[in-house]
């Protein structure tokens, strides 16, 4: 009994930390898919560059963790904004296969850039001293950094949802997801809206990549290696939805941790089977947008 409680607590804890990272990275992908109708297979690259920016700014420029994280998010969001102007906007509402081709092209370029700039090894990530080690809660010890990830993730999710629900920009975003032509007809500048959402989504991915560098190690293979996980979160949660992917990230993050805990020999078999089942049950996602 005692052991079962112990197992449940550690599965819940590690699963939750993983789910936060998955959600922060994937929510931007959900918006690009639902709002602009673009299958952005290069989304993982934004998270990867966020991770590189954080680790490199800390290691080479000697910046503190917070400054490096902020720097990474700003850099990647700016890069996202430029790419949106130059490349992505031509794809809106276009042929899906063109989108696949262009975004895979970007994945390859980012892979080459990462290899060339940073080598093929995993980046070394040291949490700041204040978040290193473990903390003890009710007689159990937990890694401090993961506890911080959970709290920080929960805070960011609350902030994001408040912004989407309560701000003028959030209302415009929801309107455009529901019905882009109607949104345009009532005077919303959708071009500008798309650009801002894309930059925000890229920035969030960079934040997730940087914060989660301990859970999903940063290497040139990152955009390919975890692409399926991000796509799964969006497809299961519901493309275009803000809350759906959170539910999906929780469900998949915790169940994946549980499967690996109880049956490591089965690898990812059961999580893939669960995903397939969820897709069959809810083809438009757990929380379909519009």
């Amino acid at each position: 009994m005692h052991q079962a409680v112990s197992a449940a607590i550690s599965i819940g804890f590690f699963g939750l930390a993983y789910a936060m990272v998955l959600y922060l990275i994937s929510v931007g992908l959900s918006v690009t898919l639902g709002l602009m109708g673009v299958v952005n297979l290069a989304h993982g690259a934004f998270a990867m560059f966020g991770g590189y920016a954080v680790t490199e700014l800390m290691a080479r420029a000697g910046l503190p963790f917070w400054a490096a994280l902020t720097g990474g998010v700003v850099l990647v969001a700016a890069g996202g904004a430029v790419l949106e102007r130059v490349l992505y906007r031509r794809l809106y509402g276009g042929d899906e296969l063109d989108q696949v081709l262009l975004t895979i092209g970007l994945v390859f370029i980012s892979l080459a850039a990462a290899r060339f700039g940073f080598g093929t090894l995993d980046q070394v990530f040291h949490p700041p001293a204040a978040l290193a080690g473990t903390i003890t809660i009710a007689g159990r010890s937990f890694p401090t950094y993961r506890s911080f990830l959970i709290l920080c993730g929960a805070g960011l999710v609350a902030l994001l949802w408040l912004a989407v629900d309560r701000t003028r920009f959030g209302a415009m975003l929801r309107a455009a997801v529901d019905n882009p032509r109607m949104a345009e007809a009532v005077g919303i500048d959708t071009g500008r809206l798309f650009a801002i959402s894309f930059a925000l989504g890229s920035g969030l991915a960079a934040l997730g990549g940087g914060l989660g560098a301990e859970i999903l190690p940063i290497s040139p293979a990152y955009p390919v290696q975890y692409l399926v996980d991000f796509l799964t979160v969006v497809a299961v949660g519901g493309a275009g939805s803000i809350r759906g992917p959170f539910l999906a990230a929780l469900l998949l993050g915790i169940s994946q941790t549980a499967f690996l805990y109880f049956w490591p020999a089965a690898g990812s078999f059961f999580i893939d089977a669960l995903t397939l089942g969820l897709l069959m049950w809810r083809p438009r996602g757990l929380v379909p947008a519009a």
Binding site: L87, R90, L91, D98, L101, L102, I104, G105, L106, V107, F108, I109, S110, L111, A112, A113, R115, F116
Partner: peptide, 18 residues
């Protein structure tokens, strides 16, 4: 160098869509 390969194929794909 595999990096060359990834770079050129990636660039080729982007230009092709364009």
């Amino acid at each position: 160098d595999p990096a060359y390969w990834y770079f050129w194929i990636g660039l080729g794909l982007v230009l092709m869509v364009r």
